[in-house]
Amino acid sequence: MNRIFAFTRRNIIELLRDPLGYIFCLGFPLIMLIIMTLVDQSIPKEAVTVFHIENLAPGVAVFGQMFVMLFTALNVSTDRSGTFLMRLYATPMTAADLTAGYIIPMLIIAEIQTVITFAAAFVISVIIGSTLSIGGMILCMLTLIPSALMFIGIGLIFGVLLNEKTAPGLCSVVISIGSFFGGIWFDAQRTGGVMLTICKCTPFFYCTRSARSAMALSFTGESFVLPLLIVVMCAAFMIALGCLSFSKKMRADLG
């Protein structure tokens, strides 16, 4: 447990001292929150509901988590590219210590990011005269924990399989696809046809759907329970696959 705590602490310090982390994990989502609120204020109220702050905030929170995936991949692939991990392999640290030490700090960062996003959304909602429900925000933040784990799992897999140059590129592709098919910037539910079918084939759609439902305090089976269940299953699968990949890579490195 001490070794996991030591590695977690090291990773948090390294992340907090990386200026890019602030730009991508905090700055970019907050800028999008402000820009889309301005867009929402400039168009007829009934036109596009997805840009209303109560729908926008959960979407932007999911968008921000995608950058946590990018930083997980970068953190793991950078450690792998040097000999730092090799040094740790020669100590009593195990694969489980190392994977836990990568996952826990990213989950903490993802949660801090979510809290800051909702705090900013609350301030914006007060400014524009559309106060957000505190209970909805708290439930939404809790609902976003499995999706954070899912993105961290994907980041771990990319970090293990790719190097520090290719991992960010592939993560950018996932961020683009995820924000599009996740329905962050448009209401996927209203599209129908092939578009909705494609959206429903990606886990990102369910991340946004369950988060928006929690925010709206709408806990029906179709809008909340089923999407959340799908996200939980995807998170469990991605984390398990990430841990397995890391463990296998470690064995191969030591082969």
């Binding site: 090291r10 310090i13 390294e14 001292r17 990386d18 000999t83 730092f84 090799m86 040094r87």
Partner: peptide, 11 residues
């Protein structure tokens, strides 16, 4: 002490 200086750069 490996060939490369295996240290945590931001620590």
């Amino acid at each position: 002490s490996p060939q490369d200086t295996a240290v945590a750069p931001r620590l």
